[in-house]
């Protein structure tokens, strides 16, 4: 009896330990590259190339200063932010109603519609970019923040539709019906009952759209010139840059996105339903 219980606790202990080890491993998996990126950003060029690597950075700011003075980084950062915000709004404005319709109504061609939404991701952007750019030039959308945001919205839309679809499906239709019996019309029931319940999820899918826009390079490089976004502006230039500038440029690209995601992490978690509502 007693031996049996020690065996059980022994097994439990092993299980607990392996969970802990996995957690530590996964954290390191994410944190070590970010640490190396930051540490190398604040090292002098000679130290970046040296081997073995230093563990602590020497807080040499040469590489960082280069980017501070690099022509156009500020405005590109601002453009990226503007495009990402517009993408966020448009993808929710179009995606959420579509998600609601998919979850609440039965209509002809529903399945076709779902496939069509996914199809927008089936075509590689380099293939679409040429006709798109020709059309944009003719219509006058070329080299505008709005034009690029429209393209990014199309890219983000499948995710917005699918995420909101599952959000609305997760809210029992009985709640809505109860609101109707208590005197709400359809719109009121939606605004007063459904919307507050799905709000965190909507915010999460909006953030997802933001991230998709933030990371997109090809369309941004072809469709914008004066209104370049940060990845389009920097990513191609970093390809052939020396190592220490690659690290610093990487940090310039990653840190704003990290800060943004850290600020909104609560909403991001709610996408998987683990936030405290």
């Amino acid at each position: 009896m007693s031996t049996e219980s020690t065996v059980v606790t022994g097994n439990q202990r092993i299980a607990k330990w392996s969970v802990n080890i996995s957690i530590v491993f996964l954290c390191l998996w994410v944190l070590v590259p970010i640490y190396l990126l930051i540490a190398n950003t604040f090292s002098s060029p000679a130290e970046v190339n040296a081997f073995p690597k230093r563990i602590y950075p020497s807080f040499d700011t040469e590489s960082v200063r280069f980017f501070m003075n690099f022509y156009g980084v500020g405005s590109a950062l601002w453009n990226s932010f503007k495009v990402a915000c517009l993408t966020m709004i448009m993808s929710i404005a179009v995606g959420a109603p579509a998600g609601y319709a998919l979850s609440r109504f039965e209509f002809r061609g529903k399945n076709t519609f779902r496939v069509l939404v996914l199809m927008t991701r089936a075509f590689p952007l380099p293939l679409l970019a040429l006709p798109l750019a020709v059309m944009f030039i003719k219509v006058g959308l070329d080299d505008t923040v709005l034009g690029l945001a429209i393209v990014h919205t199309v890219l983000a839309l499948p995710f917005a539709v699918l995420i909101t679809f599952s959000l609305f499906s997760g809210v029992p239709v009985e709640l809505e019906e109860a609101a109707w019996t208590l005197g709400c019309n359809r719109l009121q029931a939606f605004i007063k009952v459904i919307f507050p319940l799905v709000l965190p999820g909507i915010a999460a899918s909006a953030i997802f759209a933001f991230v998709i826009s933030w990371n997109e390079v090809f369309a941004a490089a072809v469709l914008t010139i004066e209104h370049r976004t940060l990845p389009a502006f920097l990513l191609q230039s970093l390809d052939d840059a020396p190592l220490h500038l690659k690290f610093a440029g990487g940090a310039v690209l990653v840190v704003p996105a990290l800060i943004f995601i850290f600020m909104v992490r609560k909403y991001l978690f709610s996408m998987w339903g683990i936030a405290n509502r």
Binding site: A133, V134, I137, K138, F218, A221
Partner: peptide, 13 residues
Amino acid sequence: GPWLTRLQAEIEA
């Protein structure tokens, strides 16, 4: 890639 695509687009437009 972007260099060529942009140039082609302008020529076509």
